[in-house]
Nucleic acid binder design. Structure first.
Lengths: 339, 339
DNA sequence: CCTCCCTTGTGAAACGTTTCATGAAATGAC
DNA sequence: GTCATTTCATGAAACGTTTCACAAGGGAGG
C-alpha cells in the first residue's frame, strides 16, 4: 500500500538529490552528518524500504547464496543447513534453502530459477553427477558452486565431503569383528554417489571374508527402509542412511526379528534420532554442521577471489559410533534384567 | 563469464527489436511463428538466461513466496515445508525457506530482507506475537501474510492452525484416564503461543482432578528435554514437543527411571521418529503437510484476490496417538518377556 | 481502387537503484 | 586577498526488463 516508491521520495522529503540518499545508504562517511541525519529521518518517517531488485539489477548479481539439499526432511541435511546458515550469517550473507527432494527435475528447475536470479553462489548436493548436467552449465557460465558431501575428481569446483569409502569400510570391519558372515547393504538409488561409495567401502572391507548382498531402495527414507526389511536375509545390515536404518529396524521388529540378537544394524550419518531409537543405532558419524560451515566458507572465498581462484577439496573423516544395534547381545542393563 | 547481457543481444542476433524478443518470452501468440522460431534459436545459441532482477523491478514484486519456520531442524517443520512446496509447485511458484531458529532477531532480519526483495507473500510461524512486531509492519505495508500453526484473533491476516488447546486437553484426559495424579508439563519459552496453548489445554483438562506442575525449557529441542528430565518428579509428563519428549525420555532413562512403568510420557506433533523411539512415543498428531498445503493455498488465494480479500482462519483438529510411552505397563511383547 | 481492419513488429518510456564525472562551497596556506 | 585543496552535493547514465501507443503492410469488403 504505502509503498512510497523509494529513494526519490526520500530525496524530495529531505531536500537533497537522490545521489545523496544513495550515499547515505551505501557510503555514509561521504556525507555531512547534518545532511545524513536529515535523510535518515526522512527514511524512517516514510517507512522507506530499499528495493533489492533495483540494487541487484545494477550490481549484476544477487547478494544471497543458495543451498540445494537432497531432502529437507532428512535431519542430516537440516544440520548442514544450520552450519551453512551460521557461517553465512557471520558474513552478512543470506542463505536460501532449496529442496530437490532427490528429484532431478526439481533440481533442474531450482537451478534455472537460481540462475535467473543471478544467485551469487550455490552449495549443492546434486541428485546425480552426470557430466553434462544442468549444474555443469551453471558452473560454465560463471556461477561459483561448491559440492557438498560429495568429492569431486574434477577441478572445476570446490567440494566438501566425508570419505564415504572409509565410512563403508569402518562399518564393514566392525561387522566382521562381530563375527558376521552374511551381510546386506540396504540403500539406493545407485545414481547417488554416497550410496555407491558407502557400498563400495563395505564391499572392499568384506571382500573374500564374508558374503555381501544388496537390497536396493528407491530412495533414502524410513518408509523405504521399512519396505526393504521384508527382503533381508542376513545376520547384519549396513544401511546407506540412518533413515533407512530406522525403517529397517521397524520392519525387522515387525517381522519378530530381534535386533541385535538376530540381526545387527549399522546406519550412516548418526543423526540425533539414531541414539534415541528403539534400539540405539550404531552409525557412521559425519561432521554435519562442519560440512555446511566449511562449504559456505569455501564458497564465500571463491566469490571473494573472483578472478583467479584455486579450487579446493576438503575431505573429512567419518567415525563409527557403536551402540546397541550392532553390539554383541549384552546384558548390561540391570534395570531391565532385574524386573 | 559468458553473460551476454540479455535480451538486447538476442534481438540483434535474431534481427528483431527487443520488444519482439520480450513478446516471444511472455506472449508468444502475438508473434509470427517464423519470427518466434528465429528468436528461440538465437536464445539457445547464445545461452541466454532471463534476468529476474530486471523483471521484478518492472513488475514491482517478486514471484516467490517465503516460508519462515521456527526451526528447520524440527521434523515437524520440514514436513510443513514439504506440504508448502507441493502446493506452491502446482502453481508454478517457488518457495524460499528461511529459518528463524526461534530467535526473534534472526526472524526480524529475515523479514527485512524479504521485504527488500518485495517478496510476494510470507508464510510464517512467528517467534512471538507481540502486537507491534516487525511482522505487523510488513502486513501493514501490504505484503500478504499467512500465519502457520497459529490461530489469530486478529482479522488482518489469514491463519492455519491446529487446535492446541484441544491437543492439550486430549493429552490431559488420557493421562487422567491412566490414573495419573501428578503431571508435569515440560516446554518453553512461554512466549511461543503453541507452548502456552498446549499448557493451557492440559491445565483445563486436569483442573481439580490432578496436580499439574511445569518444568520450563529455554527452547524446544532434544537437548532441552534431556536437561529438563533432571527436574521431573511426577508420574506423567506432557511435552510441548516430540523433540522435548524424546529428550525427556533419554534423560529419564539415564536416571534409571523406566518409561512407562515409572513415568508416562506424551509428546506433541507425532513426528516420524516418535514411533521409532526407544519407547514408542504417545503423541498428539497434527496434519503437518496439510498445514503447509493449506497455508500456501490461502496465501496464493490472497495474492490472487489482490484488492478485496476475506481473511480466513482454518483450524485443524489434532488426534491423540497412544503408544507404549503412556500405556499402562503391559506385558505384550512375548519376545522380550520370554528371554 | 479506396477504406477499414487485423496482424506483426517497433521504439521509447519506465521501474529504483548505484556510480561517476563534475561543480560548488568551504577551508587553509601563503 | 589569492590560489590550491578538500569536502559535499548533484545530475545523468546505466543496469535489463516489460509495456504500450503506434506504424507498416496485407487482405477483405465495398
Amino acid at each position: 500500500m504505502s509503498n512510497t516508491t523509494g529513494i526519490k521520495e526520500v530525496a524530495r522529503r529531505a531536500g537533497v538529490s537522490i545521489g545523496t540518499v544513495s550515499n547515505v545508504l551505501n557510503r555514509p562517511e561521504l556525507v555531512a552528518s547534518s545532511t545524513r541525519q536529515r535523510v535518515l529521518d526522512a527514511i524512517t518517517e516514510l517507512g522507506y524500504v530499499r528495493n533489492d531488485s533495483a540494487r541487484q539489477l545494477r550490481a549484476g548479481h544477487s547478494r544471497q547464496i543458495a543451498l540445494v539439499v537432497l531432502d529437507v526432511t532428512n535431519p542430516f541435511f537440516t544440520d548442514v543447513v544450520r552450519g551453512a546458515e551460521a557461517a553465512a550469517e557471520e558474513h552478512g550473507v543470506m542463505v536460501v534453502v532449496c529442496n530437490s527432494g532427490e528429484d532431478a527435475g526439481r533440481e533442474h528447475r531450482h537451478l534455472d530459477l537460481l540462475e535467473e536470479q543471478r544467485i551469487r553462489g550455490v552449495l549443492i548436493t546434486p541428485v546425480d553427477e552426470s557430466p553434462n548436467s544442468r549444474l555443469e552449465l551453471l558452473i560454465q557460465r560463471g556461477t561459483p558452486v561448491v559440492l557438498v558431501d560429495r568429492g569431486s575428481g574434477r577441478h572445476s569446483r570446490c567440494s566438501v565431503a566425508v570419505d564415504d569409502l572409509l565410512g563403508g569400510r569402518l562399518a564393514g570391519e566392525h561387522l566382521l569383528d562381530q563375527g558376521h558372515q552374511r551381510i546386506t547393504f540396504v540403500g539406493g538409488p545407485a545414481s547417488i554417489t554416497q550410496v555407491r561409495d558407502r557400498h563400495a567401502g563395505i564391499a572392499e572391507a568384506v571382500a573374500g571374508r564374508a558374503e555381501l548382498s544388496v537390497v536396493p531402495t528407491p530412495n533414502l527414507t524410513v518408509a523405504a527402509g521399512r519396505a526393504a526389511a521384508a527382503e533381508i536375509d542376513a545376520t547384519a545390515v549396513f544401511c546407506a542412511n540412518d533413515l533407512v536404518a530406522l525403517g529397517v529396524l521397524q520392519g525387522l521388529t515387525q517381522r519378530g526379528i530381534r535386533v541385535p540378537q538376530d540381526v545387527a544394524i549399522v546406519g550412516y550419518d548418526d543423526i540425533e534420532f539414531a541414539a534415541a531409537a528403539a534400539v540405539p543405532l550404531s552409525s557412521v558419524r559425519q561432521p554435519r554442521e562442519q560440512l555446511g560451515r566449511t562449504a559456505t566458507a569455501l564458497l564465500l572465498e571463491e566469490i571473494e577471489d573472483d578472478g583467479r581462484h584455486e579450487h579446493r577439496h576438503v575431505v573429512f573423516q567419518p567415525e563409527l559410533i557403536v551402540r546397541e544395534s550392532s553390539g554383541r547381545p549384552r546384558t548390561r542393563r540391570p534395570a531391565r534384567k532385574g524386573r
